[in-house]
Design a protein around this nucleic acid. Structure first.
Length: 432
RNA sequence: UCCGGCGUAGCUCAAUCGGUAGAGCGGGUGGCUGUUAACCACUAGGCUGGGGGUUCGAGUCCCUCCGCCGGAGCCA
């Protein structure tokens, strides 16, 4: 008998099939029972009649508990009473393994602490099934976008020396007898090197921030997509980000629509995302906020509340550009028309989800880079190879980093970023 | 690091002014051929996070430790 996946059952109506999966839910009467079965591809109801399977097999099937694994052989039937149009009338139910204890997650009525303690089992819940499929769609969209545009994927290292934007939030690792290495908080500097070799490059991988952040937008370990393009300047950079984010939204709408619906996402809001995205300079943003009652002063960085206020004005993500250079990283290119601000942008997701991209044109002038490193008290000798890039055929170049989980949380409408990754690493939680 | 909140049955939560520890779900047993968070009957289940204190008496008040949750800063 042919083993088929639940998602393909509609092509097997009136045929005998074998399903391999797990018991999601069970309801039983004396002579008939119903098993809601899942197999990783979908969900279907199995009807077990005592008169069809026989007394012995019915008794055996009755012993199945939640999350027992089982193999079912039976006939695919169209049935209006079934939620997805088809159900299985069992001929034979073969238990694979029956747990000796209750499955810890029974009803959608658990605290977040309890669910996170049981994350390895929580993944089997319907909502998590759909969220992880949306994550998969976002990942595919990102790679597809770049490959369609002739970018080369360059995988940047996880172990790095103490080099990056700042040294204070790095995870330290013992590296044999040679001292310390650090977990990457960005691959940007390496992508800057790679773009001088390959032109248009991107990465997609985990990054680590030793920041004691406890908010719905923060993870200790999160995935970042970074891109870097030689000869791209500020405006090219913004257009690339706009195209990417728009592409991801469209791809998810086209390829994971059912998953969005299943978790109750208001897809009309995603439908309103349109190019070009709205833009505001930092200075305009400060003026706007001041008019609306904020006491923010020019020169202060935007806080979480300010970002939310700004992004809620628009249906599409908002670019905030030209920040004061003192609130941004050392490597950002000054604006030629006003050296007090830099050629950078943050992309703030709509609906109050906050920053999903940080971007800038990078300084390509050797002397200016030295000046900025000194200004920030960074160890110039550690940046030797980074400075080499300004020594040998330096060109203007730009890039950005996209927070993958924040993007997923926004697109899926999640309340907390920890659901956007299979096993979230947050402050005080590394188990399971 | 700072601010706030929570910790009671396997799970989610009640418990009035400090006065005998309760419910729903889940589990067990029995019943039911169309259930969708099935239903009906019966049933078992507790060191109230740990330690200390106040009191005739503490789930409740105080101190302390632990765990978790949310927010700020910082960032993606």
């Amino acid at each position: 008998m042919e083993w088929v996946y639940i998602k393909d059952l509609k092509n097997y109506v009136e045929r005998d099939v074998e399903l391999r999966g797990w018991v999601r839910r069970k309801r039983s009467s004396g002579k008939i029972s119903f098993i809601e079965m899942r197999d990783g591809s979908g969900f279907v109801q199995v009807v077990i009649e005592k008169s069809t399977v026989g007394d012995d097999n019915f008794a055996q099937a009755d012993k199945l508990r939640l999350e027992s694994s089982l193999i079912v052989r039976g006939k695919v039937r169209k049935d209006e009473r079934a939620p997805n149009g088809v159900e299985i009338l069992a001929n034979e139910v073969i238990p694979v393994q029956i747990p000796s204890e209750d499955f810890p997650i029974q009803k959608p009525d658990h605290s977040i602490e309890y669910l996170m303690d049981h994350r390895h089992l929580w993944l089997r819940a319907k909502r998590q099934f759909h969220v992880l499929r949306i994550r998969d769609a976002v990942m595919k969209a990102i790679r597809k976008f770049y490959w369609e545009r002739d970018f080369v994927q360059v995988d940047t290292p996880i172990f790095t020396g103490a080099i990056g934007e700042s040294a204070g939030n790095l995870f330290e690792i013992d590296y044999f007898d040679y001292g310390k290495v650090y977990l990457a908080q960005t691959g940007q500097l390496y992508l800057e090197a790679a773009c001088m070799a390959l032109g248009k490059v991107f990465n997609l991988g985990p990054t680590f921030r030793a920041e004691k952040s406890k908010t719905r937008r923060h993870l200790i370990e999160f995935w970042m997509n970074e891109a870097e393009v030689a000869y791209y300047e500020h405006e090219d950079n913004i257009r690339l980000q706009e195209d990417l984010v728009y592409y991801i939204v469209q791809y998810v709408l086209n390829n994971a629509y059912d998953d969005l619906i299943a978790i109750g996402r208001d897809v009309s809001k995603l439908g309103k995302v349109q190019k070009p995205f709205p833009r505001m300079t930092y200075t305009e943003a400060v003026e706007f906020l001041q008019k609306h009652g904020s006491d923010i002063k020019w020169g202060n960085d935007l806080g979480a509340d300010e970002e939310t206020t700004l992004s809620k004005q628009f249906d599409s993500p908002l670019f905030v550009t030209h920040y004061p250079r003192h609130v941004k990283a050392f490597y950002m290119q000054p604006d030629p028309s006003n050296p007090e601000v830099v050629l950078c942008d943050d992309l703030l997701a709509s609906e109050g989800y906050g920053e999903i991209i940080g971007a800038s044109q990078r300084i390509h002038d050797y002397d200016l880079m030295i000046e900025r490193l000194e200004e920030n008290n960074l160890p110039i000798d550690k940046y030797d190879w980074y400075l080499d890039l300004r020594q040998f055929g330096s060109v203007p170049h730009s890039g950005f980093g996209l927070g993958v989980e924040r993007t997923i949380a926004w697109i899926a409408g999640l309340e907390h970023i920890r659901e956007a990754i299979p096993f979230a690493r947050t402050l005080y939680r590394i188990h399971p």
